[in-house]
Design a protein around this nucleic acid. Structure first.
Lengths: 216, 216
DNA sequence: TGTACATCAGTGAACGCGCGTTCACTGATGTAC
DNA sequence: TGTACATCAGTGAACGCGCGTTCACTGATGTAC
């Protein structure tokens, strides 16, 4: 994590910090919900939630934007770890798609605030914020691309434009995931089924396109 | 368009309105841009841009939320018309995908503010606002579904889950379109190519899946 | 060990600002007769 | 046609509020000697 480090680590003089960056991030997360987006958080509000004076936030973050970026980076890391674990567990292509989608939706269902942010706010906010979201999505796409190529090697199926395939899957799943946030939980199972089918469409498509390209 | 109608239409008494709902909507649109989203507009700001007193807005809209919903409805109508025209012009499936994507990207390139809103802000804002976006997307999906079914009939190809296919395409294209808003215009051609390929993946996928279902 | 000192995390008060909303109003328009 | 009247779109002033940011400060901690 970049940004202003806790001063105690850099310069061991002075008063020890009694609150940490993490405490402030946790306070911000508490305030977020289906009807509160990161860009509507105010500095004073976060400070209030964290139980500190408004201006104390400046000791840890240049401004709220820097806090927002920290939230996004955290969210990306968290999600990639979860999906990475789901990937390890799966073996066949079918179970990878199903397994990862299940893990994704499970995290959604558990009201993971970090994931909500990542899904919901990629298109609004400051440039720094949008870039941070884009960066995390790119990480994600890249891991997915490697995984698709690995599976294609094992199954000896072709793979047309792996990078583009990974991008399509990622963007589609995130877009569908975002709609889930406003859905009642009972609909999640149905939505999961839809997402799995959509992803299969894309994968079947690339395989078929690779095939017809080869036979040309 | 629902909402409070211009009173002159309902009750022909009193002073004639010198500004209209449309004037206020136009003022709001002027204020929007890559770094201004609908939810950050203030009532006073819109009034200033429209050249009226802040409280005059209340004569036309209950609150800014109602204005935002009006913007979304307009945006949806506008986009559906553009895509509808592109659809009319095309005949083969390949040219429909290419033609509609071109029309879509052309509109983006022309900095159509309405389209920006639709792409960018589907996941933030008030419930009413999010519902309005969802409603427009559903209209769009439905028209696409009918078109896919029409093409499948002509070409005698199968079509696996037309509604789901339409949804996948719509959501993916909108998600990719949203990323375009932060891209320099030189990259638009490349992005258009990517989108066309992605849509082909999905269509190829559904056709292949329909085929393998039939032969079972 | 004791003392003087430097550091700096967190504070409390204050600032000016733009906000949404309210209120009583003005005066142009259309209606009734 | 002329006159009295009702309607209501738009106004201007005022309100209380929460905001981001600044400033000089306090006092706990660690360091030097």
């Amino acid at each position: 994590m970049s940004g202003i480090p806790d001063s105690v680590q850099v310069n061991p003089q002075g008063r020890k910090p009694v609150i940490s960056r993490e405490d402030i991030i946790a306070a911000a997360l508490k305030l977020l919900g289906p009807n509160r987006s990161v860009s509507t958080l105010s500095l004073r509000e976060v400070a209030r939630e964290a139980g500190i004076a408004p201006n104390s936030i400046y000791r840890h973050f240049r401004d709220l934007d820097e806090l927002a970026v920290a939230l996004i980076d955290l969210a990306g890391q968290s999600l990639r770890q979860i999906i990475g674990e789901a990937r390890q567990r799966a073996t066949s292509e079918e179970s990878v798609v199903q397994g990862c989608t299940d893990a994704f939706m499970e995290q959604l269902r558990a009201d993971d605030r970090l994931l909500h942010i990542l899904l919901r706010e990629g298109t609004v906010g400051s440039d720094a914020f949008k870039k941070a979201v884009e960066r995390q999505l790119n990480f994600f796409e890249d891991e997915l691309r490697l995984d698709l190529m690995r599976l294609a090697r094992i199954k000896k199926t072709g793979l047309y434009e792996p990078a583009l395939t990974a991008k399509a899957i990622t963007r589609l799943v995130f877009a569908m995931g975002a709609t889930a946030l406003d859905l009642p939980k009972e609909k999640y199972a149905e939505l999961t089924g839809q997402i799995v089918l959509m992803v299969r469409m894309i994968i079947t498509g690339t395989q078929t396109m690779a095939l017809s390209q080869k036979t040309k």
